[in-house]
């Protein structure tokens, strides 16, 4: 059996013919393995969903309790068989509940990383490398220009800015699942114990993180009463909102805000400038170039398949290293989902 007979790309997503299931399908299918709760990977409307209990809980919060006909929770390390194909999930270190999917059949083992990173994240279990014949790696930051700096240093940069500009609110765009909670945890680790204000769209996910054992410290809604002087309440404070809210009318309630954005893309000045960011915070939940290449070296698979992101560069690197590699060109994953 060739590896591509065990898993191969289709318009609906990565498909396993012997097991008759998809991994992170972009269209509704009969049976899906979901690696993590971000919207471009976890969609509603599948017949059955197999995922970690945390990912299932996140999907229920985002899509409502009836997001699938059948939930199949699978804790890290637990093994299950689907139509003769062996499956287990291993931590990916991307967000709470994120997993790599290990698929084994007739002596062939393929690992799909989903989205992952290697550096420490106080909100989720760390990535574990798994030996395999084929490693399917993401490549969101698959260019050698992407080297994410020390995360704690970026959190300190934000705290320092609130001290330098105590008269201005610090408005930080951060993805509502994962990035927001991780940023909060890093701020807490750096000694920031004041309340952090959050946009309404983030409340339920923050509550869920706390329920699942990730303490976030005091959080308050970033709402404002229509009384005079209320606006000043946010001077020098940290407010976290989804990136899309930064340019919405919602953002007008804050006094002369410092627009900040927590993302790996902030490494590129032009990107930060285009978004009108004054304080770029380089913080990513994806592996940077070094993490990607070190992971491939560490796992040392017989073959590397590269999906969403800058596939060409990672494939080029693998070829220079004398590795077998190809780009899968899966469609439907958001370029900027960060």
């Amino acid at each position: 059996m060739k590896p591509s007979e065990l898993l191969h790309p289709t318009p609906a997503g990565l498909y396993c013919p012997p097991g008759d299931f998809y991994i992170d399908p972009v269209q509704p299918v009969g049976r899906a393995i979901i690696t993590h709760g971000h919207a471009d990977h976890a969609r509603a409307g599948h017949g059955a969903v197999l995922a970690t209990p945390e990912t299932l809980a996140i999907m229920a919060v985002r899509y409502g309790e009836v997001f699938t006909e059948k939930r199949q929770p699978l804790a890290y390390g637990e093994v299950v068989e689907v139509n003769g194909v062996t499956i287990w999930l291993v931590p990916a270190g991307h967000v709470l509940g994120s997993a790599q999917a290990v698929v084994e059949h007739r002596g062939i083992r393929i690992v799909t990383t989903g989205d992952y990173k290697r550096r420490r994240d106080p909100t989720c279990a760390a990535f574990e490398p798994v030996e395999c014949d084929v490693l399917i790696s993401e490549a969101t930051f698959g260019l050698p220009v992407f080297i994410h700096p020390d995360t704690a240093g970026e959190a300190r940069k934000l705290i320092r800015s609130t001290e330098q500009f105590p008269e201005r609110a610090h408005l930080i765009g951060a993805y509502a699942l994962g990035k927001a909670q991780r940023l909060i945890c890093h701020l807490r680790e750096e000694g920031y114990d004041k309340p952090i204000y959050i946009h309404g769209a983030m409340k339920r996910l923050c509550d869920l993180y706390e329920e699942l054992g990730v303490p976030l410290g005091p959080l308050l809604p970033a709402t404002i009463e229509k009384e005079k002087g209320e606006k000043d309440r946010f001077a020098g404070e940290i407010i976290i909102c989804p990136p899309s809210a930064m340019q919405s009318t919602w953002a007008r309630r804050f006094p002369d805000p410092v627009p900040a954005f927590a993302s790996g893309w902030m490494r590129v000045r032009q990107r930060a400038k285009q978004r009108g960011v004054e304080l770029p915070i380089i913080m990513s939940d994806h592996a940077d170039w070094e993490e990607l290449t070190n992971t491939v070296r560490e796992v040392d698979p017989a073959e590397l398949w590269v999906t969403h992101g800058r596939e060409d560069a990672l494939v080029r690197w693998a070829e220079l290293e004398g590795r077998r590699a190809k780009a899968l060109h899966l469609v439907g994953y958001e370029e900027d989902a960060e």
């Binding site: 260019l143 050698p144 220009v145 992407f146 590129v268 032009q270 560069a313 080029r316």
Partner: peptide
């Protein structure tokens, strides 16, 4: 090749070179 891919993405030779 990696430099060209990077420069195309970053859009500025100086910045691509500094980062890479």
């Amino acid at each position: 090749v990696l430099f060209d891919l990077s420069r195309d993405y970053v859009g500025d030779t100086a910045e691509a070179a500094a980062l890479i």
